[in-house]
Design a protein around this nucleic acid. Structure first.
Lengths: 127, 127, 127, 127
DNA sequence: GTGGTCTAGACCACC
DNA sequence: GTGGTCTAGACCACG
């Protein structure tokens, strides 16, 4: 899939997975009633312990984003797209606010911040 | 001082302190040969255990940013300003990259990201 | 294991552990990819607080000698053997220089120093 | 004077002073009834807090090496030479034993240790 | 007063 | 089970 996990970025791994699933749903990459990879499959792919994946999926079920289908796996709920699109801004804005606060604390000029943002946007677009 | 600690932002508290000291040095808020607040004082101010502060300060010494003056406290080293200015971009770019990657993953358009950035920049500028 | 900790030899306990691990790696007693004893286990064995062990292990990670394997423990890094063999001479020479400087300060003749060394070498060899 | 203080060699500063005074007495560099430098003078010379010097001198008085002469200062006691010569071997052997134990722990050959010793002896002789 | 070290014991994330 | 982080509180060396 499209995951990128960084064990050292401060966020717990299960939380990174939760966020990324939500963002994928918000972006339409994962659509309602679509199945997410099985715990084992995703665990293999990310080289992460299955328990960690399971925990992320559990929380996504609690958050109403995933829904268990007996004997089959987990699917994206019908209401998930709307819910995640709403949450998306909050998720991103929260982290963005942190980094901009740090930038300001170090007296980086707003203009320099913009340049950094543009540079990184380009890097990402290409990827 | 100028610290803002958030126990729930993912980063360990001691790491937040390390980053903020480095950013303050990079931004010229803390100048070489200036003393940082004592372990106990900062602990009191932030309502954080002194050992946590001590750990941050220890790492800052390892990183060559602080220097112990026996029985007196810890001062910013002479080379710290340059070193921190260099590191500043890396520190901020690292976190910025994370949030932009998330934004892209959710298929936020670059333009929407720019708007978010501008909005947050304004919020911060006023503060 | 092979540790010998003396709380009164001047060096901090965590530093004694750091040195002894490095020396063990240098001497091939601990080999790359081998696991070191767990924090709790070593703490029990040496009757030392786990935090003290953890601090030593943390420094060894900073020094690139150990490497954390999530949920499993800490292993000796692949490059550690070379690095520690290099550092071994420095570690030992540093302390040797101290004691020889003291010997000279007390006007002990070089010959007497040699005899002391030989005597102690014999004591140790037997052990 | 002839002191060499290293704040980072593990030994407390006051202890380094105590040892060095004893060794100087043992070696005949400081003779009975000779005066040691005043607390303030030595403190200035070594760039060390006078309290630290005072503490070392206090311990040397407790150990019978120095003796206060009212209004004058501290002199080396008459019995100090013999007592320190005796203690000298113990002081040096103790530290020597530590470093040789470390050398052995890292599987350094006795021959290599001898070479290190000779090399350092030469360095020191020249100084 | 300062920082450095150590202990004791808690909770969390991960395997 | 593992290490990582944090808290609380002690003692020491040094100024």
């Amino acid at each position: 899939m499209f995951f990128h996990i960084d064990p050292h970025n401060g966020l717990a791994i299960y939380d990174q997975i939760v966020r990324q699933i939500k963002l994928a749903v918000a972006g339409g990459v994962l659509r309602p009633s679509e199945m997410v990879p099985s715990v084992r499959e995703l665990a293999r792919e990310l080289a992460i312990n299955p328990n960690t994946i399971a925990r992320a999926y559990r929380q996504l079920q609690d958050d109403g984003v995933l829904n268990g289908v007996r004997g089959t796996g987990l699917e994206v709920t019908s209401g998930a797209a709307a819910r995640c699109r709403e949450e998306r801004i909050k998720l991103i804005r929260g982290r963005l606010r942190q980094v901009l606060a740090e930038a300001r604390q170090s007296h980086l000029e707003a203009q320099q911040v913009r340049e950094l943002v543009e540079k990184e946007l380009k890097v990402i677009e290409k990827a």
